[in-house]
Amino acid sequence: MGAGREFVISLDGVRDKNVMQLKKLNTALFPVRYNEKYYADALSSGEFTKLAYYSDICVGSIACRLEKKEGGSVRVYIMTLGVLAPYRGLGIGTKLLNHVLDLCSKQNIPEIYLHVQTNNEDAIAFYKKFGFEITDTIQNYYTNITPPDCYVLTKFIAQAHPKK
């Protein structure tokens, strides 16, 4: 980025009116076509799903699902996180992930996790920087890509106000 031309990165929620932006991003970023449930989960997760705008252009997104565990506690599953290729390296992914992590600690959500293909070292390194750990490996998780295995990356978040 040139000096003196800072471009604003802002986040916006996903609604019925702009959900197509998220679909366009996913089509460009991922080889999977997501189904209606994905979008319903994303929409109902509220603040946990966000579009990132680079000077008014939608260039990235994070989409989460809120999961209820037995016993009533909630955990967050990151369904997708991605930024359009030309706009990488500008801190947009970090901003999106930090937004969700902040939200978790504010809402006392202790656990956030995701799946990642075992050979995707860049992604694993990225998440590790944020305190995620490999907590599990699932064999043959993917059907059409090799390697078919994935790691489960989890971050346990310290509670802001621990329960007594």
Partner: peptide, 28 residues
């Protein structure tokens, strides 16, 4: 047109998180 008619291929459609391409350039 807002209709997603195609069902995803595997049981868990959300499984491709942390995708290969999306993070290759994520050097921060």
């Amino acid at each position: 047109g807002g209709v997603n008619s195609q069902e995803s291929k595997s049981g868990d459609a959300h499984s491709l998180n942390g995708n290969i391409e999306a993070f290759k350039a994520l050097a921060i």
